[in-house]
Design a protein around this nucleic acid. Structure first.
Lengths: 240, 240
DNA sequence: TTATATTTGTGCGTATGTATA
DNA sequence: CTATACATACGCACAAATATA
C-alpha cells in the first residue's frame, strides 16, 4: 500500500473521497466522473474505484448504470439540532416536520460514582436510574443516549419514559414541569460497536458525543446524560 | 474476517478497542491486561493483539516491557474550548495556561459564490480573501481553519494575520475593534488527507467541524469560517 | 439506421497484505 | 520461523449497454 493509511483498505479511502466530492458539490453533481477519471484522480486501479462505488451503492448514495454512468441518488444532508437552554429532542425534530420517537433500550439501577455524584450534587453511592435510549426521526435512528437520574427523587422515571418515549413527558409525570440545559460539552469519536448496531450505521461511522446536565427551575441538577449522534445525520446549531 | 468490519484491518479495530479501554478507565488503568486476555476479549489471535499494541506504542500511548507487561504512558485528555458570543481561540487557550499561536498556511483571492455571499451579505462575485490557517497550542497542532473576509472592506487582512498570527489582532489592525460570534454549527467527520498532514494526525482521525459567522458591533457579518478541530484533542463547551 | 465512442460490468492472472495455526 | 487461507490491489482484455455523430 503506497499512499493510503496502514490498516485501512484503499477502496474505503476512495469511497470516503467520493463521498466528500458529492458533499462538497452540494447538490451540483448529479453524475460522478467516469471510473477511469476517478481512478486517475485517486491514483488507484479502476477495480478499486469500482469496489468503492459498490460500497456507496450499497448505502444508497449512488446508483451505477451500465453504459450511462454513476449517478448521485441522494445527497448527504444533515438535520439541524438547535442547542440552547431549552434543548429538547422532540421539539427540535418536529420543527423540521419529522416524526420523532424515543425507545427505551435498557434500564439499570446503579450507585453514583464520584463524577456522577458531583454533577448531580448527590452523595457518592446514592441510587440512580440509568437509561439507555434510542431517538428516532422518521423511522431513522438519530442518537443513543445514556441518562442518569437520582432514583430517590424520580422513582418512576423508567416506567414513565417507557410509556411516553419522551424525557420531557417522563419528567413531567415525575413532577418536573420545566427544566433547562445548563451545560453541553461536545466532542466526537468513532462509534463503538454496540452503538453501531442500534444506530444501524457502518462500524466506522463518526458520532458527535454530547455530555450535558439538565436542571429544574430551582437550578437543582436532575439529569446527567451522554448522547451519541450520528455525525452524518445531524449538525448541532448554537446561536449566541 | 469474522467480527470486524470490511475494509478495516483487524489489528486496527483492536487498537481502537484498547484505546477505548484506556479512555473509559479514565486514569484508573496503569497496566493493560496481558496479551492473552486481550486476544480472548477481542476474539483474535495474540499476534493480532501484538500488532495493535505496536501501533499504540508507536503513537506513544502505551509502553510494553518484556516480562512485566504493557503500561499506559499517557492518557488521552481533551482541551476544553468554550464557545459563545466572544469565542476567540487565543483567549480560550491562554486561559488554560497553554501557548497559542496561529500560522498562515496559504491565502488566495476568490469571488463570492451564492452561499458565501448570502452569509456575508455581499453580492455574488464580490472579491474575498480566503485564508487557510493552523492554530497551535504548546506546539501541538489543534485546528485548521478556512476563513473568508470581504476583500473590499479588509484589503490588508492577509498581511495583518501573517504578522500577528491572530484573527482578533488582524481585524483590529483593519479597524474592527470588537466582534461577536453569531452562530456556530457543529458536526464531525473523518479528517481529509491534506488536513491530516498539517494536523500531524493519523489519517483516520476524527475532526469536529465548526461553521461560524462573526459580526462587527453593528451586526454586519465580517468573517465566515470553517474550522476543523482534532476531536481527540478538544471538546467544545457551551454554557446556556 | 448504422457505425463509433463512451461507460459500466466481468474474467483471469499475479503480487502483496492480513490473520491464523 | 513456516505453511495456509483469504482479502486487497493491480493490469490487461473484452463484453454489454448506452450515447452520439
Amino acid at each position: 500500500m503506497i499512499g493510503g493509511e496502514e490498516g485501512i483498505a484503499r477502496w474505503r479511502s476512495v469511497a470516503d473521497g467520493i463521498r466528500a466530492l458529492i458533499a462538497d458539490a452540494a447538490g451540483a453533481m448529479e453524475k460522478l466522473p467516469v471510473e477511469a477519471d476517478l481512478a486517475e484522480r485517486f491514483q488507484v486501479n479502476r477495480h478499486t474505484v469500482r469496489r468503492a462505488i459498490a460500497a456507496l451503492q450499497a448505502e444508497g448514495l449512488v446508483r451505477a448504470e451500465r453504459g450511462r454512468g454513476t449517478f448521485v441518488e441522494r445527497l448527504p444532508q444533515r438535520l439541524s439540532y438547535p442547542v440552547g437552554a431549552r434543548t429538547r429532542f422532540s421539539e427540535n425534530i418536529t420543527g423540521q416536520s419529522r416524526q420523532p420517537a424515543g425507545r427505551l433500550i435498557t434500564s439499570k439501577r446503579e450507585a453514583a460514582d464520584a463524577r456522577i455524584a458531583a454533577a448531580l450534587r448527590i452523595r457518592i453511592g446514592a441510587p440512580l436510574h440509568r437509561l439507555e435510549t434510542l431517538s428516532v426521526a422518521d423511522g431513522v435512528p438519530m442518537s443513543l443516549a445514556t441518562s442518569w437520574f437520582p432514583a430517590e427523587r424520580f422513582p418512576g422515571i423508567v416506567a414513565a419514559y417507557a410509556e411516553s418515549g419522551s424525557i420531557t413527558k417522563a419528567l413531567a409525570a415525575e413532577g418536573v414541569a420545566d427544566y433547562r440545559r445548563q451545560e453541553t460539552r461536545i466532542t466526537a469519536m468513532r462509534v463503538n460497536p454496540s452503538d453501531a448496531e442500534h444506530l444501524a450505521c457502518p462500524r466506522d461511522a463518526v458520532v458527535l458525543v454530547t455530555d450535558s446536565v439538565n436542571c429544574d427551575p430551582d437550578d437543582a441538577p436532575i439529569q446527567l446524560s451522554r448522547a451519541r449522534f450520528l455525525a452524518d445525520r445531524i449538525e448541532m446549531v448554537f446561536r449566541t
